[in-house]
Amino acid sequence: MIIAVASGKGGTGKTTVATNLALATAGERPVQLLDCDVEEPNAHLFLRPSIDHSVVVEIPVPRVDPQRCTCCGLCADVCPQHALSVIPGQVLVFAELCHGCGACSLACPEQAISEVGRSLGAVEAGTAGSISFVQGRLNVGEAFALPVVRAVKKMADHQRVVIVDVAPGTSCPVVQALKGVDFCLLVTEPTPFGLHDLTLMFAVVQKLQLPAAVVINRAGPDDTRVQAFCHENHLQVLMEIPEDRRVAEGYARGIPLVQTDPRWAVGFRQLFHDIVRLAERNPG
């Protein structure tokens, strides 16, 4: 079973929920955590895994053989990213713009274009206690996150309960991380920001036809609009984490909730059982 933990905006407590869910469930079932938030992978800060291997994620980028190239310009014309420039006597390759689609090498009438790997980031794997841990890490200054997310997703161990920490937002890498999961847990907070971003995220989940439920973080007594939205859209609120300075301080120090108070361990185990129940009732 693959459970994605997602949120429309950053900082709602997505990683808190993903890591605590992993820690609580690991007492009962074999668990794997995939950190697909490759721009800012933070789950390791709470799980403190030991990383035992790391694989570079590469995409194929063009290399032009100047002996064969006639500077006809076809490669530059077909490149959707405009990563090739042809000037008299020379083809310039801007590899950092390339998405690795291979159109240029296909199009080249002289077979002058071969492909070489270019590193975008890395996938790192290890263990945190009994939890199998995998994270993607995008190189700094790199714009193309998708291949790194894909590489992390490929590491899913279907013998385990897989918990995917998804990047915030509703963009392409998020959709990629959500593809093929069995259930999506949406983390939000009871503010106009939280409600707005939950609305956007819910649209994505509906588009992907994923069963979903909500966790409200920093819950307080005085804002009920998120609950009302969930009620209207038949989204169950499975857990509320109260607005509490002690919770915030624990988070600041990187101490998982389940280690601050045994009641949270019970709560997150219950959360897992609720997810299983909902996923079985509404298969995606």
Binding site: A76, C79, Q81, H82, A83, S85, V86, I87, P88, L92, F94, L97
Partner: peptide, 14 residues
């Protein structure tokens, strides 16, 4: 253009 605007513009001038 989404990407590579500068390089394309430069090719145009070349």
């Amino acid at each position: 253009s989404t990407t590579g605007a500068g390089a394309q513009a430069a090719q145009l001038l070349v």
